[in-house]
C-alpha cells in the first residue's frame, strides 16, 4: 500500500495535468495531452464499437422481435405483390405486341375480315394435329374457315360448337391444300404427315424446285383463298423413275408456340364433306 505522501503527490500531479489541460484548451492552442490520449484511445474505441455493434444489434432485435416479424411479413407480402405485378405487366406487354402485330396485319389486308381467337387447348395425342380456340358459332365461325396468323396459313376450322371451335392444322396427316411455288408458279398439293411436317406432292418432274422457294395457297378447290403463305421448301425429293417430284416444307407458322390466331370470316369455303 502506498504511503499518504505518495498519494498526495499523485493527486497533485493529476491536478496539475488537469490545470495544464484547461490552460491549453482556454488558449485555443493545440492540446498535446488531448492529442496524445486521443491517438491511444481512438483505435481502441473503434475496435470496441465494431465488436459491440452486432451484439447491440442483437439485443435491439430481441427487443423488437414481434415488430420485426410483422415488418418482415409485410415486406414479403409486398415483394410477392410486386412480383405478381411485374409478371402481369410482362404478360400484358407480350399480349400487346401480339395484338399490335395482328392489327398491323389486319390493316395490311383490309379486304380480310379477321377475328382474333385464343388457343385454349391442344389435341393431347401425337397422331392428330388439332387445337381448340375460344370462338365458336356465336362469333360467326363456320366449318372450313381458314385460320391464320400474320406469318401465314395455319389450318382450318374442322368442328364448331357454341363458344369454341376445333382447328385442323396443315400438318395433320388428313390435311391437304392446293398450292403453288411463288418463284416458278408450279402447282402441287401440300399435305401434312406424321411428325408435324408438310410435304408438297405432285410437282411435275420438268419443273425446277429450289430450296428456299416460298409456297403459297393456289385457291384451287375453293378451300382457301389464294396467296396465303404456307411455308418454305427445305428439301427436294426427286427420283427419275417417279412421275412427280416432292418437296419438304417448313411451315411458316409454328403452331406450338402460338397463343392466339385469326379466323378469316369473309371467305366462303367450298363445302367439305362431314368427317
Amino acid at each position: 500500500m502506498k504511503a499518504p505522501r505518495q498519494w498526495s503527490i499523485i493527486i497533485i500531479l493529476v491536478l496539475l495535468l488537469i490545470l495544464a489541460w484547461l490552460v491549453f484548451d482556454s488558449l485555443g492552442a493545440q492540446n498535446p495531452l488531448r492529442d496524445g490520449l486521443s491517438q491511444v484511445i481512438s483505435p481502441l474505441q473503434l475496435v470496441t464499437k465494431r465488436a459491440w455493434e452486432p451484439i447491440s444489434g442483437l439485443f435491439a432485435g430481441v427487443g423488437r422481435v414481434s415488430e420485426l416479424r410483422r415488418e418482415n411479413e409485410s415486406l414479403r407480402a409486398e415483394v410477392a405483390e410486386l412480383r405478381t405485378q411485374v409478371i402481369l405487366l410482362h404478360e400484358a406487354q407480350i399480349e400487346n405486341e401480339d395484338l399490335r402485330r395482328q392489327l398491323d396485319f389486319k390493316s395490311a389486308v383490309p379486304n380480310y375480315q379477321l377475328l382474333s381467337a385464343e388457343i385454349i387447348g391442344h389435341d393431347p395425342g401425337n397422331y392428330l394435329q388439332y387445337f381448340t380456340i375460344d370462338r365458336g358459332a356465336d362469333d360467326g365461325l363456320r366449318r372450313g374457315m381458314p385460320v391464320l396468323t400474320e406469318a401465314g396459313l395455319l389450318g382450318r376450322i374442322s368442328k364448331v360448337s357454341k363458344n369454341a371451335a376445333q382447328v385442323m392444322l396443315l400438318t395433320d396427316p388428313s390435311s391437304s391444300v392446293s398450292a403453288f411455288i411463288q418463284r416458278s408458279r408450279t402447282t402441287g398439293l401440300v399435305q401434312g404427315y406424321l411428325g408435324h411436317g408438310l410435304v408438297m406432292r405432285y410437282i411435275p418432274q420438268s419443273e425446277t424446285v429450289v430450296v428456299g422457294d416460298v409456297v403459297l395457297t393456289s385457291g384451287l378447290g375453293g378451300s382457301f383463298p389464294k396467296r396465303l403463305v404456307i411455308g418454305q421448301i427445305t428439301e427436294v425429293h426427286r427420283d427419275d423413275v417417279e412421275m412427280f417430284q416432292s418437296a419438304t416444307i417448313a411451315p411458316s407458322v409454328d403452331p406450338h408456340s402460338l397463343e392466339s390466331v385469326m379466323v378469316l370470316l369473309n371467305f366462303d369455303p367450298f363445302e367439305l364433306p362431314e368427317e
Binding site: G125, N126, Y127, L128, P173, S174, Y193, L194, G195, E275
Partner: peptide, 21 residues
Amino acid sequence: SVTLLGLMGHWLPLGAALVRI
C-alpha cells in the same frame, strides 16, 4: 390408336406411325 383412328377416317400409315410416333 392408329387402328381406331384409321377406322374413323383419319388414315395413318402404320410404318410411319411406328417409326415417327
